[in-house]
Write a protein that binds this DNA or RNA. Structure first.
Lengths: 247, 247
DNA sequence: CGACACCTTGACCAACGTCAAATCCGGTGG
DNA sequence: CCACCGGATTTGACGTTGGTCAAGGTGTCG
């Protein structure tokens, strides 16, 4: 284990907040929990929400804090993570537009959420949202579906963290991001990474160096192209799939 | 990585099934999803369930199968796992009495569930349970709570798999099991392990040998006592807690 | 153009995995 | 009650993957 503790600089949350919001031209409504609601129901939601704006590095929620808000990601990327007392960090997921944030147990957040880049969120006060939930079963049903999806993802990630090699982990990550590009309606043969190598490492249970080395190796093998800091081209996705599925 | 593929012997499911069941003297009702229901609601659930009995090694649900049942664990231990094509296995959790099983996405199970020892389950046909859900919001709410709990557990496990040392993992496991003994109303300074070392290893992302060595070491250090195959006494729980929390 | 993160690469190392050989239980049958 | 069998567990010797430490590069933004 390490004595080299990567201090993960945390900034106090100081989001820009705007009350009253335009669900009408919301770009993620269809892919978010709101997608199942009627116009009248959306109106009731709109009445209790406000929108927030975070800059890269700002903290949205903090592990251990009282869980009195729920969020929908409208734009940007959010990282969720847990820390050990000595600073080791495990990123448990990256949230993209349309994703839901804030599920908690015992009214306390179990993880920290931090803006990776510029992030826009819809915030719902828990009290008021829960009041609505009891009147809008379809929303609760939709949330249960989201939660089920999150559990399935988490199990995949446990398989990755517990049993995959570095190469397999990186291939899995690239393909996961490509799939998400697809879901956002963009081409799936290239990905734009908002996060740093260190974020990727902490997500995959590796070190920055190993992520970097593995990416270089995949590039060497002709499977990917690396363009600047953030872009990766998937040159031979089928080879990556083979790798991911443990070949 | 290994060429040594631990063949995980799988037996075809052939559970004993009994229709019509005694919710009245159910021992896990209070700690299961049923705990939030009224007597009338329980009666409606009772009408659609049947109870099943599995012997050690029998499969309850299989990854990829059509997800048409949901279950409540009444007694025994169930392991949930995912496999890689070459046989590497990751156990994503152990279910104990009162736990819920069967949450799925796209109507397909994302993992396999297998009896560790003799197991009794309550089975609910998905179709019929979902029909009830829409009429019993409190049940759906309770399920959402369970799902939230499962997500929190999964995130803890990701931290363990991605960032903890072998010693920290084993300490975490022992304390987790002790906590569950407590929830079952038994003393928390000793635990009874239904699963093998190999199960523990596949849960912790280690090998049997490393689990065994680490347990021996903890015993050497006076933190635990090992009695026969399945029992572990926690002699210095506070030391284990310190270890778990990364000391 | 220059500063500063971030990223890459190299040399070395340690924790954990692999392979192999006892040893230990727990059940079975005499 | 005791000897024996077989799978599970433990222990030992050694190998490998990925981590650690330490220099360089490189892209981005002022």
């Amino acid at each position: 284990m390490s004595t080299r503790q990567l201090a993960h600089r945390q900034q106090e949350p100081a989001p820009t907040t705007v009350v009253g919001s335009p669900c009408n031209h919301c770009e993620v409504r269809e892919i978010s929990v709101c997608g199942v609601l009627t116009a009248a129901e959306i109106e009731r939601l709109r009445a209790i929400l406000n929108t927030q704006h975070y800059e890269a590095g700002q903290i949205v929620i903090r592990e251990g804090d009282s869980a009195d808000s729920l969020f929908n990601v409208v734009s940007g990327t959010v990282r969720l993570y847990k820390l050990l007392p000595d600073g080791r960090r495990q990123i448990t997921g990256f949230l993209l537009p349309g994703d839901f944030l804030g599920i908690a147990l015992n009214d306390v957040y179990a993880y920290t959420a931090e803006a990776v880049d510029t992030v826009h969120l819809c915030r719902f006060p828990r009290r008021r949202l829960e009041a609505l939930l009891s009147e809008m079963p379809s929303l609760e049903h939709s949330l249960l579906g989201r939660a089920a999806g999150e559990i399935v993802l988490a199990q995949d990630q446990m398989l990755l963290l517990g049993r995959k090699t570095a190469r397999e982990r990186v291939a899995s990550f690239l393909l996961m991001m490509a799939e998400r590009e697809g879901r956002a309606g963009r081409r799936t043969d290239r990905i734009e990474l908002a996060m740093t190598r260190s974020d990727i490492a902490d997500f995959l249970g590796l070190t920055t160096e190993t992520v970097s080395r593995t990416l270089s190796q995949l590039k060497q093998d002709g499977m990917i192209g690396i363009v600047g800091r953030g872009r990766v081209d998937l040159l031979r996705p089928e080879s990556l799939v083979e790798l991911r599925d443990a070949g």
